[in-house]
Design a binder for these strands. Structure first.
Lengths: 149, 149
DNA sequence: ATTTTTGTAACTAGACTTGTTACAGTTATG
DNA sequence: CATAACTGTAACAAGTCTAGTTACAAAAAT
C-alpha cells in the first residue's frame, strides 16, 4: 500500500487544531479519517515523539496539540511520520572497479539529501493553520449550497 | 524494499553517457550495478518509453542514449521510473459529515502536486553530464592514491 | 544454422502498510 | 472501591510492491 501516514497525520492534526480546548479521542478521529482507532493511535504515537501532541490515558483521556496551529509547519509533520527517503539508493553496492560504479554512490547520496531537503522546504511554507483556512474555504460553498436546497 | 529504480537508472544512464559511441549490453550494466541483467532490462524498458534510450535486439545488440548527456535532466529520469507520489492520500475516503474530512482531500491533493513539482524542480537543475563530471571528480583522488602506492 | 542479445512472462522471497483483535495500564465517576 | 472509558502496544492477517531469478520467444549478425 502507498504510505498515507502524512495525509492522515495532517487530517488528524487539523481536527485537533479545530478543537484546541478539549482532548480528542482516537475513536472520534478514526471515524473522520475512516479507519481503525489503532491506526490513529499509532500515528499519534509518532506525533507525540515529535512533540506535536500530548495524550492522556484513562477515563476522560484523549489528545491535543502542544502548540498553536500557526506554529506547526507541515515539514515537521512530514519528518514526524516519514521513514523513507524520496528515492532509495542501490540495494547492492555498485562495483568499484567500474569508473561510474566507483563514484556514483557519493553523488546519489548528496542528490538524495538535496531532494529530501527540497520536499521539507516546500512543505515548510505551510502551517497547520493554513491547512484549516483552506479546508474552511473549500467547505464554505458546499454549506451555501445546502442552504439553497 | 525501498524503491531504488531512480538510483539504478542514473547509474545506467551515466554508463551509457560514458560510452556514447557504442551499444552497451544489459549484462555489462548489470555487473556494475551489481544486480541481475533482467532488472536492468526492465529499467531500460521504462527509459525507452520515456525516449531516453534506444535498444537493439540480436547478435550485436545493446542500448545507447538518444540525446547528449548535457540534454538529459534528472527530473526526466525521475519521471521515467517513478510510479508513486512523494506521499499518498487516504486509503479510504474521509467522512464528509466532518468539517475537516469534507475539505481535507482537496487540500492534500494540491499539496501533493506541489510537493511532487518541487522534487522535479530540484532534480531538474542537474543534467546527466553534471553527474558524470561529479563522478569523475570523486574518482580522481582515488586514482592518484593508486599511483602513489 | 548458430550464436548472441533483447523483451517479457512467471514465479519467489522479503519488506512494508493498513486493518484488526486482544489486552495491560491509567484515570475519572458514582 | 468497583466500574467504565480511555490510551499504548503487541501480534497477526491480507494486500501491495521490489528485486532477483529462470525460462524462452524473437531478432540480428556471423
Amino acid at each position: 500500500m502507498a504510505n498515507s501516514q502524512f495525509a492522515m497525520a495532517v487530517h488528524v492534526l487539523a481536527m485537533l487544531a479545530n478543537n484546541c480546548d478539549e482532548r480528542i479521542k482516537s475513536g472520534y478521529l478514526a471515524e473522520s479519517v475512516n479507519t481503525n482507532a489503532v491506526v490513529i493511535r499509532r500515528l499519534l504515537c509518532d506525533l507525540h515523539d515529535a512533540e506535536l501532541v500530548v495524550s492522556r490515558t484513562g477515563y476522560s483521556g484523549g489528545t491535543c496539540l502542544t502548540r498553536q496551529p500557526s506554529a506547526i509547519t507541515l515539514d515537521e509533520v512530514f519528518d514526524a511520520v516519514s521513514k523513507a527517503d524520496v528515492f532509495g539508493l542501490h540495494p547492492n553496492q555498485p562495483k568499484s572497479d567500474c569508473e561510474i560504479g566507483a563514484g556514483i554512490t557519493s553523488v546519489l547520496e548528496r542528490l538524495q539529501e538535496e531532494t529530501n531537503l527540497s520536499v521539507r522546504n516546500s512543505l515548510g511554507s505551510y502551517s497547520l493553520q493554513d491547512v484549516i483556512d483552506e479546508v474552511v474555504r473549500i467547505d464554505l460553498p458546499k454549506k451555501q449550497e445546502e442552504l439553497v436546497t
